[in-house]
Amino acid sequence: MMNIARTWLPPLAIGTLGIASWEIWVRAFDVQRWLLPPPSSIIREIVDSRALLSEQAFVTLQEIVIGFVLAAGFGVLLASAIAYSKILERSLYPFVIASQMIPIVTIAPLLLVWVGPAMTSKVIVVAMISFFPIVVNLVDGMKSVDQDMVDMFRTLGASKRQIFLKLQIPTSIPFFMSGLKIGVVVAVIGAVIGEWVGATGGLGWLMRLSAPQFLTARVFAAIIVLTVMGVILFAIVGLVERMVLKRYPRMN
């Protein structure tokens, strides 16, 4: 009980203090609502537009989940290829890194032209942006095997394939989980960028639509819903990580 209080009380106190000063400041100086709405009207907006917000949040969530799962799957394949073979590493890794040098905001409009304004283009942006931390972490993990362990496998007559499956893959699991955590966070950003450039729905689309209409409270409401969604997704990956890493006592 004391522990829960100790972990949650400080951020709660800071948050409450921040929101309270924001509210007071906006009211005291009579700031225009379309410039900066007070927290109370943002909360009211969330309550009033809950149907719209949850509908758009669901669109964004779908883009994030599909893109992230694709990135994880593709990332595992790519990382395995890179870690398994020197030739594949030399031929693939430069392109993996180069892919992250392309500014995503310049690719996103092109994707729109190529595949249309439907969900697909957003899913691709999410996957493109989140596969990178997954691949890099996995490759590092697969290569971080202890040479003594590899030797032990060799004395038992293990083939390269067996060493990969039974030693390199398990060794890389904690690294993979770190990659997933970073990946899920950038996936949220990727979805919003994708929607911002052009979409028919989603929280990013809603923000883009509301800002020019001076519906600032709605923009803030969308930001809050997006933030909460991102935190929950991160927490889910963190939970999976903790479950998986229970089997890695020494590395935990």
Binding site: M152, L156, G157
Partner: peptide, 29 residues
Amino acid sequence: LGQISYMQQKDLLLPWRTVLDNAALGLEL
């Protein structure tokens, strides 16, 4: 390699495997 059993100076157990699964590794391979 694989024709001689070698117990090295370090125990080199796999931390993610149980005692039983560690012991069985050689046969599994």
